[in-house]
Amino acid sequence: MSNLNIKIGDLQLKNPVMTASGTFGYGLEYADFVNLSDIGAIIVKGTTLHHREGNDYPRMAETPSGMLNCVGLQNKGVDYFCNNIYPQVKDIDTNVIVNVSGSTPEDYAECAARIDRLEKIPAIELNISCPNVKDGGMAFGVTRKGAAEVVRAVRARYHKTLIVKLSPNVTDITEIAKAVEDEGADAVSLINTLMGMAIDIERRKPVLSIKTGGLSGPAIKPVAVRMVWQVARAVRIPVIGLGGIMNAKDAIEFFMAGASAIQIGTANFIDPTVSVKVRDGINQWLDQHKVSSLSEIIGTVD
């Protein structure tokens, strides 16, 4: 057994496998399939200060090796999370991290401050990259100034581990990563979905209700690996890699590119037990290659 422990800020992970926000519910939806405590961290659904209904149906389109979604941050708001969901997830024996979204820096900061009070939530992931709502943060995530502004507002009111999730829909992702590092982010996670579109040629209309959506799944993996590699060389804070990871081999690629931990997203829809299989597969790979600690392979590709 290799050592899979990883530290992200003050966050201690028993293994580097996290489940990505929006793909694993609150964890509870998957409790029949996996032992939740086997997962390094569960990042729960995007949470906003106020309740959001999300976008109209259809919200999903299957595409080659992936899917588009435009859910649009449907959630019942941070107070509902604190009062109704938190009591159900606080005793899960792993890190439960809340993904936070908003439309203004003040919204983000207020939402984060309310989660800061929850003893058993050791970290948040700031979503400055949702492509599916007009006011949902991607506007912040695509400029250095916007990204810095949100992180500064949140950092002032949030005192635990702060992860910032970056958008790939930018010219130079390293510029954004450096900007959020300068404002005190403890880690960055990347990539969020790539903006895409699908057209129903018989109806001559977009498949998705809001026309465009975020592309996820193995189709985006090479883009994600490239961006993780670029960012890992540009910042000193840990990088969490995600984008199309389906198995342990995919995960190892991200580690070699420079990720200290990884997230599994869309793959959860195809195999609800995949997160634990990836953890086991990483272990096996390290054993087979006589690597005693995961940290030995992180960022080993120049």
Binding site: G22, T23, G54, P58, P272
Partner: peptide
């Protein structure tokens, strides 16, 4: 149209 089937992805609303 569905993806996860478990109430996690919120696509089939």
């Amino acid at each position: 149209m569905m993806a996860c089937g478990l109430g996690a992805c919120l696509c089939c609303v």
